[in-house]
Amino acid sequence: MKTVKKLLPLLCISVILGVFIFSFVKDMYSEKTQYGFACGSEVKVTVFGTKDGEEKSKSAIDEINCLDRDVLSDTLSTSAVYKLNESGEYTDNSGELVSYINECADLISSCSKMTLLSKPISDIWNISGGGRIPSDEELVDAVKKADMKNLSVSGNKITLSNGGKMSFGAFGKGTVCEKGVNALKNSGAKGGIVTVGGTVGVFGKCGKSDTVTVGVRDPFAGAGEYFATVDVKDCYLSTSGDYEKYFEKDGKRYCHIFDAETAKPVDSDITSVTVIADGGTLSDVLSTAIFILGEDGLTLAEKYNAQCIIVKKDKSVIISKELEGNFKLVNSGFSVSAV
């Protein structure tokens, strides 16, 4: 019986140690979050179910940064788009920019109100510098410059003509978000959430639940406040709205999303559009498109098997009927109808 007396404390200690080791291992595999900056927004990357989560999310942020810095940015002199805008032509040896251009051009081909060459328009409105209202001549000139016909791609050679200047401003966040998600997937993580500004990419199993709850920004309230949530999995969410980047003059609001046919900011009864789709670029392009086209854009969403949430200025909300059940209103000031 002496052995029992000796064994009992030993057993106690091993149980305590076991619990600690288990929780330590579990912590090693628990979610890890890292922050960074790209595309003029904050980047947040969270990984689930993997070792070295911190390094993996850091390297995803690095990939996002590289894509922005080397390819897509129109403000950093290191990027391919910047060089293209400066000299009017660019030979894309890696083929990366060409593939993004083709993807976007394909998506917006059905919508003449959208363009990849939006820089001439945003330049004359100068919204990020406080905003100004351009003259009619400037508008006409900008419409001509922004015409997609001024962009030609043959092989690896990209050429701009007639003063066209490229900007991925409307789609870049979706593209880099997709890049970040793919980086996490390739790293072997079981799940991940990548947020670039307002674009959110979600994949795999994030935590206990199979779905991830994502808030939808309340266009009428302060930063980071949401009026509803959606439960999603393996998809991308993008939102285009007139509430963040804008200037006001004589009581009128001029937002940062432009109609390429008039070179004027979109002015409709819609204040924000959220699109949930299978691709980051896709969701970002579609949210901008539907913001510009209004409810007519819903057919576009259907075509690409995407769901959308449209918030109007009178606080009425239209959601795709596929979202019913996953969409939860948290602010009772809004009225929701499904289409």
């Binding site: 947040k44 959110v200 935590g207 709850t213 994502v214 924000s272």
Partner: peptide
């Protein structure tokens, strides 16, 4: 960023 307590809060906000 104001820290959230994690309960019932969405993991991300689009917008």
């Amino acid at each position: 960023e104001i820290k959230s307590d994690g309960k019932n809060a969405p993991r991300a906000v689009t917008g």
